[in-house]
Amino acid sequence: MHFGNLDPAHAMSDSNSPSLDNLALRTLHGLADEGERVELARLLGSSPESRRRFLDHAMLHGMLAREAGAGAFAADAPAFFRDIEHPPARKERHLLGFWLPAAAAGIAACVVAFSLLPTRASAALERVIQTLNESHDRTYRIEVIEPADEEMPPRADRGRFPPANFLDGARLWLRGPGEFVLSQSLPNGQSRVIGSDGGESWSLRGGEAVRVSPDPERFGRAIFARSSDLAFLDLRTQIDDLKPLYQIEWLDHSSRETWKLIASRRSADHGGPREVELWFHPETGLLERMILRHLPRGNGGPRSIAVILESTAPLPADFFSHGHYHEPGRTILTEP
């Protein structure tokens, strides 16, 4: 089965080592226990054929992840392959337009709330949804209320500065659907900016090369959910999927200034924050504060955060494009 070797004489049958196949795949899919991982390490040290077979699985795993990011399994996969074989002169943005950024994650929780409220409240919340979907500039500040558990060390496999671990003091700017910018300060004095203009996403750190992806949620994905148990990807089309997950109650709607809702996750079997608190203006529906409590531990970030509205001042037209954040000559690495 070793597909790196182009000589058919070296091709093997899967059935020769089902045990290695299982150990490799269970490890790559995060299912292997300690004993299985130790056994896999032993097998890899024992024969070149085991190593080649394992590499076949590992490389396929990596290629599938990259192809998925590029849209190979999307609803319009045939168009994806047509584009590869016969590239259009200019990539149509609308092909990927149904993906919204993961960095607007918490806002998705609002949608959960809105769709579950009693009639009168849901009417008010519909107004908030409408406001969220309008193309207005908003600046939010992120504060960590409760940091990551001490016994949970930052995930080393997320690189030196995992995005989820540096949210305190970060700023999030939103415009229309799919448009976001998140700016973080890193311990080494650099800043990292992740964003999307709704068509492509990008990331840059300090004076390094700009990384650009045609996947609008590619770089925001690292912030909130690796396994999108509570799907933060598309606010409009995933509402139905999210509805059953949260119980919505009024926290306070006596004030003329701010109304507050609380959304509690119905079951621990589902991912996402255990509790989401939403503060919004009763007349305009403008989201003023969102508190996400008991975020999933597996992501390595804080347990609870608040996203606080700072400003609704208009931002420059090109604010959601990476060109706004670097000099013209900066190296740009575009992912396929």
């Binding site: 590992a58 990596g62 690292a222």
Partner: peptide, 20 residues
């Protein structure tokens, strides 16, 4: 990039770590 990413995934066994 695809070949280098594939090489890294093969050695770190996690495509997010390979991305970083």
């Amino acid at each position: 990039q695809p070949a280098l990413h594939g090489f890294l995934v093969s050695l770190v066994h996690d495509h997010h770590a390979a991305d970083d």
